[in-house]
């Protein structure tokens, strides 16, 4: 950490989407963020702005967040046209202000998709992602004694593959980035994770069909293989899982 940076403070112009509730008409408002250092995270920068707003008797900018360490998937902001701000494999809570320069203008918008209705300002309702998981993103198991850890052998490549898919934190940036608002990367991550494991195989064909049905019924679009999702995904989920989903769906036609 070089000492001269410690004194540097930035002033930024924020153009933020404000919307009272799901049905209200939203609009952009402009704010000035003062006293921001390069060590602030993006959300901390908003905290600073919100403190000023609250002191001034104004409504703070509402946004979703929880862990602020890139693991929960709650934060959800489109920063200058890219969900999570466009830094590779980074959630917006882990984006730091050193990525910006003094005097920058920053557009902040909520996820936009028919399946993600706006709750307020930058907060959207992502129940649709839960609906997709509830449709089949699980393995059914009978309760009973504790299973023997080594009873089911899983090869290292299969375990790695499943773990890579399981990295999805369910943030919805894939659908927010997709020009068709398809949540296919999200759906495929769960389908692929479970289809790779012996515990998930018995229900694989029912699962992929039900999850795809739910995906459509929630109002997401269809995948056009643009791969914008992978570029925006903070966990770097690979589109090979979408190919796997397509394969699983085709297999399911004969099951």
């Amino acid at each position: 950490m070089s000492s001269h940076n410690e004194h540097k403070s930035m002033t930024l112009t924020l153009i933020v989407w404000r919307q009272k509730n799901a049905t209200a008409q939203g609009k952009f408002d402009t704010y000035t963020a003062k006293g921001i250092t390069e060590h602030h995270s993006f959300l901390e920068m908003l905290d600073v702005v919100n403190e000023d707003l609250i002191k001034g008797g104004k409504e703070p900018i509402m946004f979703d967040h929880d862990c602020r360490e890139g693991i929960c998937g709650m934060c959800s902001q489109v920063v200058n046209g890219v969900p999570h701000g466009g830094q590779e494999r980074t959630t917006v809570c882990q984006l730091h202000m050193r990525k910006f320069k003094d005097g920058d203008t920053i557009y902040i918008e909520p996820w936009r998709a028919r399946a993600f209705p706006i709750v307020r300002d930058l907060i959207v309702d992502r129940t649709a992602l839960d609906t997709i998981i509830q449709a089949g993103g699980f393995t059914s198991c009978h309760t009973g004694g504790i299973p023997d850890g080594n009873a089911i052998l899983i090869s290292k490549p299969d375990a790695d593959y499943a773990m890579d898919a399981a990295e999805c934190i369910g943030c919805g940036a894939c659908a927010a980035a997709c020009p068709n608002s398809a949540a296919m990367l999200f759906t495929s991550a769960k389908v692929a994770q479970l289809a790779a494991l012996p515990q998930g195989k018995p229900e694989a064909s029912v699962r992929v069909k039900k999850m795809l049905d739910a995906h459509k019924e929630c109002g997401f679009g269809n995948c056009s293989n643009h791969y914008e999702c992978q570029a925006a995904c903070p966990k770097g989920i690979n589109v090979k899982f979408i190919a796997k989903l397509n394969r699983e769906y085709l297999k399911a036609q004969f099951a």
Partner: peptide, 9 residues
Amino acid sequence: YAVNRQLKV
């Protein structure tokens, strides 16, 4: 989006 920077499309 008001601003839409596409990375891959």
